[in-house]
Amino acid sequence: MELLMPGLGLIFWMTIAFGLVVYILKKFAWKPILLMLQERERQLVKSQSDARRIEMEMTQLSQLRARKLAEGEKLVEQMTIEAHSKAEAILEEAREKSREEARIIISRADETVEAFKKEAMQEIRAQISSLSIDMAEKILEDEFSDRDRNTHYVDMLLDKLVLN
C-alpha cells in the first residue's frame, strides 16, 4: 500500500523540475532541432522535385537533340540531293554551252571552208576562164587563119539569119 501513497514533497519538486525541463528543452533543444529537421526535409523534397524537373528537362533536351539530329540528317540529305541536281544542272549547262560553242566553231569552220571553197572556185574559174580565153584565142587565131572558110561560114550564118 505504501507504494501507492503519493508524497507531497516529491510531487512539489517534480512539478517544478519537470516544468523547467519542458520549458528549457522546448526553448533550447526541440525548437532548433525540429526547425532543422523541417528545413532538411523541405530541402530534401525540393532536391527531389529539382531532380525530377531536371530529369524531365534532360529527357526533353535529349528528345530535342534527337529531333534536331533527324532534322539535320534530313537537311543534309536534302542538301545532297539539291547539290546533286545543281551539279547535274551545271554540268548540263556546261555541256550545252560546249555543244553550242562547238556548233559555233563548226559553223565558223564551215564558213571558212565555204569561203575557201568560194575563193578556190573563183580562182579555178578565173584560171579556167583565162585558160579558156587563151585557148579560145589560140583557136581563134587558128581559125582566123583560113579566110575563105570563115567567109563562107559567115555567109551561111547570114543566110540563116536572113531566113529568119
Partner: peptide, 19 residues
C-alpha cells in the same frame, strides 16, 4: 529527478546548439 533533469537539459540543449 533533479539530477536526471539537469543531465537531460544539458545534453539535449547541447544537441540543440549543434543543430
Amino acid at each position: 529527478v533533479f539530477l536526471s533533469s539537469a543531465i537531460l537539459c544539458l545534453v539535449l540543449a547541447g544537441v540543440g546548439r549543434r543543430y
